[in-house]
């Protein structure tokens, strides 16, 4: 479970990204975070990931305070969270297999574990035939699926994606969303910040709408924007 209690974030340049945010995301939930640019979506994700610390308030993940966490515990937190970005962030000089295996090497998995687990996740995202290709040889959707495989390979309990379909066309976006749906169905909490209105509207999952750093709407089986 992820809990935000009265969380505010003011950046050093004076920008108030979040103001008194309180919300809870239960284990196994599928959540869309929507809102205009600058609403605080990315900041919220950065706080969960402890890339940033809140100016005020508390954040708990799995009963532990992220705010009071010591710096050397941060790698452990991140190993339990899979992260996917709009720009994929793959290493262009490594094959699909190596990109995914990289995340396992970092946690010192054995070679046999890597050889077993990497093909397994690549199959899950439908890239088993592309293992030996390099990212520049792949389409945008394939690159993003590689990134998802990398986020997934260490069996995280939470999967976070920041605009994962921002660089993709609508058909490919659907493929990616199906991927996330499948991951969620296996029990992983999925949090997606997005602008993809059509997808949000038709998937009817929980939608948290932010604006000016505050929650303006939080609905189960919600849509991107309320008809006014």
């Amino acid at each position: 479970m992820i809990s935000f209690f009265n969380v505010s974030k003011v950046y050093p340049n004076g920008v108030k990204a979040l103001q008194g945010l309180s919300l809870q995301i239960k284990n196994g939930e599928f959540v869309f975070i929507v809102g205009p640019s600058g609403a605080g979506k990315t900041t919220m994700i950065k706080l969960i990931f402890r890339e940033e610390l809140p100016t005020k308030g508390q954040i708990y993940i799995g009963g532990r305070s992220v705010v009071r966490m010591r710096p050397r515990e941060v790698p452990n937190l991140r190993r339990r969270i899979g992260m996917v970005f709009q720009d994929f962030r793959l290493l262009p000089d490594r094959t699909v297999f190596e990109n995914v295996a990289f995340a396992m090497k970092v946690i010192c998995a054995s070679r046999s574990e890597i050889n077993e687990r990497v093909p397994e996740v690549l199959k899950l995202v439908g890239l088993e035939k592309r293992m030996d290709n390099y990212p520049p040889q792949l389409s945008g959707g394939e690159q993003q699926r590689t990134a998802i495989a990398r986020a997934l390979v260490n069996r995280p309990s939470i999967m976070i994606a920041d605009e994962p379909t921002g660089n993709l066309d609508i058909d490919t976006s659907w493929e990616i969303m199906d991927c996330f749906k499948e991951i969620n169905e296996q029990g992983t909490t999925v949090i997606i910040a997005t602008h993809a209105k059509e997808i949000v509207d038709s998937m009817r999952q929980r939608v948290i709408a932010l604006n000016h750093g505050e929650v303006v709407r939080d609905e189960h089986r919600g849509v991107y924007a309320n008809a006014t």
Binding site: R78, M83, V106, I107, N154
Partner: peptide
């Protein structure tokens, strides 16, 4: 990327 996947 190393930091994001939880490298110490």
């Amino acid at each position: 990327i190393m930091k994001y996947v939880g490298a110490t």
